[in-house]
Write a protein that binds this DNA or RNA. Sequence first.
DNA 1: GTGGCATTCATACCAACGTGTGAGACAATT
DNA 2: AATTGTCTCACACGTTGGTATGAATGCCAC
Lengths: 223, 223
Amino acid sequence: MQRTTLNLLLVDREMPQASDQPPVVHVVDDDDSLRFGLESLFRSVGLTARTYGSAQEFLKAERPTGPGCIVLDVRLPGISGLDFQEELSDLGIHLPVILMTGHGDIPMSVRAMKAGAVDFLPKPFRDQDMIDAVTTAINRDRLQRDSESQATAVIDRYETLSPREREVMALVTAGKMNKQIAAELGLSEVTVKIHRGAAMRKMGARSLADLVRMADALKDRTR
Amino acid sequence: MQRTTLNLLLVDREMPQASDQPPVVHVVDDDDSLRFGLESLFRSVGLTARTYGSAQEFLKAERPTGPGCIVLDVRLPGISGLDFQEELSDLGIHLPVILMTGHGDIPMSVRAMKAGAVDFLPKPFRDQDMIDAVTTAINRDRLQRDSESQATAVIDRYETLSPREREVMALVTAGKMNKQIAAELGLSEVTVKIHRGAAMRKMGARSLADLVRMADALKDRTR
DNA sequence: GTGGCATTCATACCAACGTGTGAGACAATT
DNA sequence: AATTGTCTCACACGTTGGTATGAATGCCAC
C-alpha cells in the first residue's frame, strides 16, 4: 500500500503544483550514434530527451527534478550500468530506469529487474519496444511523484507539531479516548484536548478519519 | 503496497490460526533426475517438496492451500512455464514462482520477472542460488498470507453489514458527521447513529480509527 | 529582561456521539 | 400466519469531544 492512502485529502490545497511538467528521458550511453538515434526517436513521439556519454556526465549535469525516466546502457565507461542503477537510489534519484545491453545475460537482467528496473532490452531492440518501456516508466514515475508529493506535504505539517502534540496524535490515531490518553501521559483531559485540537489544526485534518489516514501515511514513509 | 495497514487490529481474534504450517516447495519439471535432485536438495535444508512432471499433473493434484512456493521449468510438456505462471494467477493460486530454464534468453527472463517471479535461474544453477530463491519466495508468501488472511477477516465481517450500514460506514469513514450523513441520505440523525453503531459492532471496531483502517483495507482489496 | 513558545490546568458551555426504550412499516422466509 | 430482518423514528440520558477564557510555569533567544 503503499498506498495511495491519502487520495484526496490534500488535493484542494496542493493542486497548483507543477506536476504537469513535460517528462524528460535521460539517455546514458557511450555510443554517440545510439544516443542520437534515441534522441530523435523520442522526439518523434513528442518526448524531450537529454543525453549523456557516461555516468559521470549525468551526475555532473544539473540534477533532474522534473518527471521522466532514465535509459541506461549496462556497459558504461568506468562503471557498470547495474551498479549505477543502485547508486542512483542511494543518491535519492528515484527516476524509473530502463536498461539496454549489447552483451547481456540472464542473471544480469534478473538482477536489474529485482532492483526495480522497468525493462531490460537487449540490443538491437525494436523502436516500439523502447517507446513502450519509456511510456511505462513515465507513467510509473507520475504515480510515484503524486504519492510522494502528498506524503511530503503531510510530513511537512507533521514537523510543525510539538513533541507533546505528536504523542497525543499517536494515541488519538491509535483509537484511544481523551480520558485514556490523559491517564497514559499523566495529564488532565483538558490538556489532551488542547493538544489534540492543535494537532488537527496544524495537520490540516478536517476530521478524525483524515488524521488517522495521515498518521498511517507517516508510518508508511518511515518504514 | 499493500499495506500492512491493519497490523494489530485483529490479532487478538485471529491469533490461533494455522499460519505456521510447514511450507511446501512444489517442483514442476519433466526431467526426472532434476526433480529427484531438487527434492533431496530441499530435504537437506529441512524443506518438504512435492514434484510434478507436468503442469497438468500439478493441476490435477490436490490444490495447495498451505504456505510454500512453486519451482517451474520454462519448457514444460504442453505449455510454456511462462504461460503457466500467468495461468496460476488466473486460477487464484498466488504462490510465489521461481523459474528455471536450460535454454532461456533475456526477454524470457524479463517477462517472468515482470509477471512477478521471485527469480529466474538458468540451468545449471548452483544449489545455493536455488535455496536462496526458495527462501525468499517462502518469506514473500508468508507476508502475503498474513495480510491476505487479515483482509479476508475484514471482508467477511463487511459482508454481514446491511446495505444501509455499508452506506453509513462509507460516509463515516469519509469523515462526515452524523448530521451530514443524515442529510445526505435523507434520514434522521438517530437512524444514522443506529446504523453506525451496528457497523462498528459487526466490524468488530473498537474505535473510529479502527473502522477507518478497515475501510481503507477494503478499498485496497477491491482495487 | 522581555518576548515567544511549549506546556500545563480549572471552569464552563455547547456540539457531537452512543445507547436504550418503544414502536411502526415493509419484505422475505418458513 | 408467523417470524425474521431491515429500515425507520421520537424521546431521553449520559458520555465524549471541541473550544474559549484566563492563568501559571519554564525555557530559550534576542
